[in-house]
């Protein structure tokens, strides 16, 4: 399914801050090295040019245009590495490895959708951007986005593809509270796809169990290699994992998207 993975020098098409500490980068793969498609939930490793930062930063795909080979990444500037990435200028180059990892099971989601299942896409904070590509490839879902304040980055774009609602911690927009408070206002979905902070994912997992909904969770963990050799980014699994022979799975390789019942979070 996936084309050969290699480290590629991509061209920075645009770089801008779209919110406080939230950066959007659009990168163009060189012709001949463009991934045929991006599965929502996949990620890339992106490497700061400063040699003092030797590891790539795993960042999920927010959008991908296969014809132009244009990859859109939206991420939070947290440390020195991501701040350097945010300072990239159009015309500069930056190394990228991937697309990597397993995204959401699109065939299964499309089948469930065509059978009439109510599907909710849940994004919390910097877990919002990866859900946009999923909303685009699976139109007609419900999107529930959790923000701190009324700085609702990407919200308008979700509205193009999904019935969209927001929760804000300070109540300045949408429902005051969390994404769970929005979910509980309506009939429970049949299927949930979620990306966000661990407490949110835990709450979603529990909510899905209580309401008999299927759930897919996109996990985040510190990574070194991004391709499954270093075993840095494991999560705890509920069954013995085939690759590791223990209750551990690699977030970068077996994930980052897991069935909620398969992981202990």
């Amino acid at each position: 399914m996936s084309s050969a993975v290699r480290k590629t020098s991509t061209l920075v098409q645009s770089a801008r801050m779209i919110s406080e500490n939230i950066c959007e980068l659009v990168l163009v793969y060189p012709a001949g090295e463009r991934p045929e498609e991006a599965v929502p939930g996949q990620f890339v490793m992106i490497y700061p040019n400063d040699g003092a930062h030797m590891l790539g930063r795993p960042i999920s795909v927010c959008g991908y245009d296969p014809l132009a080979g244009a990859l859109r990444l939206v991420f939070r500037t947290a440390g020195a590495g991501t701040k350097e990435l945010a300072a990239l200028q159009p015309g500069e180059h930056v190394d990228v490895l991937g697309l990597l990892g397993n995204g959401y099971p699109m065939e299964e989601l499309r089948t469930r959708k065509s059978e009439g299942a109510k599907i909710a896409l849940i994004g919390g904070g910097i877990g919002i951007p990866p859900m946009l590509e999923l909303a685009r490839q699976l139109p007609g879902c419900h999107a529930v986005l959790g923000y701190r304040t009324n700085d609702l980055f990407l919200y308008g774009e979700f509205e193009e593809y999904a019935v969209t609602a927001a929760a804000t911690e300070d109540g300045s927009a949408g429902t005051k509270g969390t994404v769970l408070d929005v979910l509980k206002q309506d009939k429970a979905p049949d299927l949930i796809c979620a990306c966000g902070p661990l407490p949110m994912l835990r709450a979603i997992k529990q909510y899905a169990e209580e309401n008999g909904a299927a759930a897919f969770l996109s996990l985040e963990e510190r990574m070194a290699c991004g391709v499954g050799v270093c075993l840095g980014c494991v999560c705890t699994t509920t069954h013995k994992d085939e690759h590791s022979q223990v209750h551990r799975a690699r977030v970068c390789t077996e994930g980052p998207v897991f069935r909620a019942e398969d992981v202990a979070i």
């Binding site: 590495g81 510190r222 070194a224 980014c233 590791s244 223990v246």
Partner: peptide, 10 residues
């Protein structure tokens, strides 16, 4: 089974 995460940092 190895150690708990986080296991790596730059």
């Amino acid at each position: 089974a190895g150690n708990d995460v986080p296991r790596v940092t730059e």
